[in-house]
Structures are given as structure tokens and as C-alpha cells.
Amino acid sequence: MTRLLEVKGLTKRFGGVVAVNDLNFHVDDGEILGLMGPNGAGKTTAFNLIMGDYKPDAGQISFKGQDLGPLQTYERVKLGIARTYQIPRPYHDLPVIEDLRISTVPDSITRCLRGKKRNIEEVEQIGIGVGLKDRLMKYPHELSLGDLRRVELAKSIATDPKLIMLDEIFAGLTVHEINELTELLMEKKKAGLVFIVVSHDLKALAAVIDRAVVIQFGHLIAEGTYEEIAHDKKVKKAYFGM
């Protein structure tokens, strides 16, 4: 297995608060990694650092062996990292299909000016692939939370990534919706995609992940398979205070 993403000594402070503290973890090709921890543990901050939304105070992130440090967010996306937002962020004035299409637009003015809406079939396929077939014409305010999460996922898939980071993708969904999404992730995994799934809820991820890392106060406290971390003393303490 080759190493896809490697995070070394990552640290980020906001004022006096250390959100991420000397964090180390990695993701290998072909796996789904769970990034877990109680609320406020620094999971989303870690995502934002990997995406380049903030600059880290210390540490290094590399993807496919390349240092991400000097790269802007959009350059990281072009390398093959995509993310979803915990609270879905659709473009409120665009129907789903147009929303998705933004992710397939080439990052070049000249290529944008040539030819119009070439990629509509491709986008349709991606939309259908995440189960939005009959909702491609709908506007965000007409969709349920579960569908908005699908839109988020479809948007990240449409950027043609290798690694997708899913932020609390199961939160607030029904059991049925969770099962459907889980199936979808497994399918995409077979197709060669790699995921990091963030959740504060340990159980929700049990069926999905190959391996998990647990963080608390921005620090790594446990690493291993789901079974291992579920019985880890530090993890239990972090979650239940015991």
C-alpha cells in the first residue's frame, strides 16, 4: 500500500486556543480512514488545514509525496483532494445540476470561453450516481438535509479527486439515509477513491472505516481498527469521562 496523505507535527493556534496540537496521521491508498474525536477536538480544523483554508503554525502535510505547504486551496483540489462541508453550502440561486457543474469547469479562462456546457452529461452521471436522479433540477431550498449531503458528495466527486474528506456526513440523517450513503461510499471505494471520514459519533462509522485515528484537544490519542479504538481506555475517557 502506498502512502497517499501524510500529516506530520501539524499545529494550529487561534489566539490562546490550540485547536490542533502536534498531530500525526496518514492515509494509505485504498482505505477509508475515520478521523474521530469528541466535539471541538479539532477535526474540522485539521480538514481546513489540509485544504489550505488556514496556514498551519507548524508541521507538514504531504500528498502523493508532494509538500502541500505552498499550495493554495484550488491547487490542492487540482492535485486530487476534495472535501465536503459539515453544514452543506450549496449555491442558493442554482439548481443542483448547475451547482455540480461548477466543480467540472476548467480552471482556465480560455478553455471556459471555448465551448459551452460541454460537461453536462458527465455531471448528470455523477448526480445520478449519488442518487439525485429526479432532483437535478431542484433548488437547494427544496431539498432535504440528506439530499444536500448528497449534493456535497457529488460536488467533491465532480472535481475528479483521489482523496475525499467527508465532514460529519452522517450527522442528522435517518438510518435509511445512512445505509444508502454507506453503500455509496463502499462502491466508490471499489472504484479507487480514498476517504477520510470525520465524525464525533464512533458507532456511525463502524461499518464504513478500515482504520481510525482519534483525536482530543487537537492531539492524537488512539489509532487502530474500529475494534481496537472502541476498547481503548483513552478513547473511552475522552468520550465518557471515565
Binding site: 483554508d53 453550502r89 461548477i102 470561453l113
Partner: peptide, 23 residues
């Protein structure tokens, strides 16, 4: 063209456009 499409998307949510791999 798609340029206009992206510009409107920037007005709606610039961060998300950036996360779509567009400068």
C-alpha cells in the same frame, strides 16, 4: 459562457468555488 457561471458562483460562495478547484 462558463466564466459568467463561475463569477456568479463567486458572488454566492467564494470559498466553495475555491474548493471546486478553481482559482
Amino acid at each position: 459562457s462558463d466564466v459568467g457561471h463561475v463569477l456568479k458562483a463567486i458572488r454566492m460562495d467564494e470559498d466553495v468555488v475555491e474548493s471546486s478547484g478553481l482559482s
